[in-house]
């Protein structure tokens, strides 16, 4: 029998089963905790820090996506300080690489853009870092524009945990961190990629996109899940 814990989020009494995370229970109770690396169905990594919440009695903030619930815990998911921090995190994601919404395939379908709007970010106080990064369009069906990557690593996890190909991983570290395929080779030359399109499907921004889509035409929600599986299967006569 599962143990049920009752506790509070933003003053609201909620209940969840042992082993659930604060994020999951919040979602079930209609409390929105922002997050960009979190995606249901793959392992959480607590990296984007947007879901940081206060837990009464703890001096440290905790990532809601990885914090297991406990009886009687008192969670503050929304406060002025948290809002300010979340805005800064969002700003950091924008200034790290070269996000230009106006010319992005994901314009109007972008979780980062939604996040900025939702948190009321109107401009960036932080200076842009403006790194010179690559675009890899060597894959037949898809392309990756590292200018738009926020390193949520959903692509890496979905490729490993769901597709089982582990084509994607990360290379280098710090600000130099990039997602990469196989031995850091062009995506089109990857021998492990199954062209399933899952990575493209889960990308929160316009970093991974289908070729041939124009600006603002990259919506991933208005079409059946993983259409490319069918395309590839047909090509291979399966």
């Amino acid at each position: 029998m599962t143990t049920v814990f009752t506790f509070r989020i933003d003053g609201k009494d909620v209940a969840g089963s042992e082993g659930q995370t604060v994020m999951e229970v919040a979602e079930e109770n209609g409390i929105d905790i922002p997050g960009l690396c979190h995606l249901e169905g793959i392992h959480d990594r607590g990296a984007c820090r947007l879901c940081m919440v206060e837990i009464a009695g703890s001096p440290k903030l905790a990532a809601a996506c990885m914090t297991k619930i406990a009886e009687g815990m008192d969670v503050t998911a929304h406060s002025d300080v948290l809002l300010e921090y979340r805005r800064t995190v969002t700003e950091m994601m924008f200034v790290e690489r070269n996000h230009v919404c106006a010319v992005c395939v994901a314009n109007n379908h972008c979780e980062l853009q939604d996040m900025a709007e939702g948190l009321g970010v109107t401009h960036f106080d932080l200076p842009r870092i403006s790194p010179k990064v690559d675009i890899d369009a060597s894959h037949r069906l898809f392309a990756i524009d590292h200018n738009r990557c926020i390193l949520c690593l959903r692509c890496v996890r979905v490729c490993d945990e769901i597709e089982g190909a582990h084509t994607w991983d990360v290379m280098h570290r710090g600000l130099e961190t990039r997602v990469q395929t196989d031995m850091g080779i062009p995506w089109g030359e990857s021998t492990t990629c199954t062209s399933c399109g899952k990575c493209v499907q889960v990308c929160p921004t316009g970093a991974l996109f289908e070729k041939g889509r124009a600006v603002a035409r990259g919506s991933k929600t208005k079409r059946p899940f993983l259409p490319w599986m069918k395309v590839v299967a047909e090509e291979r006569g399966l």
Binding site: T167, W168, D169, M171, H172, Q180, T192
Partner: peptide
């Protein structure tokens, strides 16, 4: 070990 992970470790 998948190649992409080997490369990830070697460059980290």
């Amino acid at each position: 070990v998948p190649h992409s992970r080997v490369y990830g470790v070697a460059t980290f």
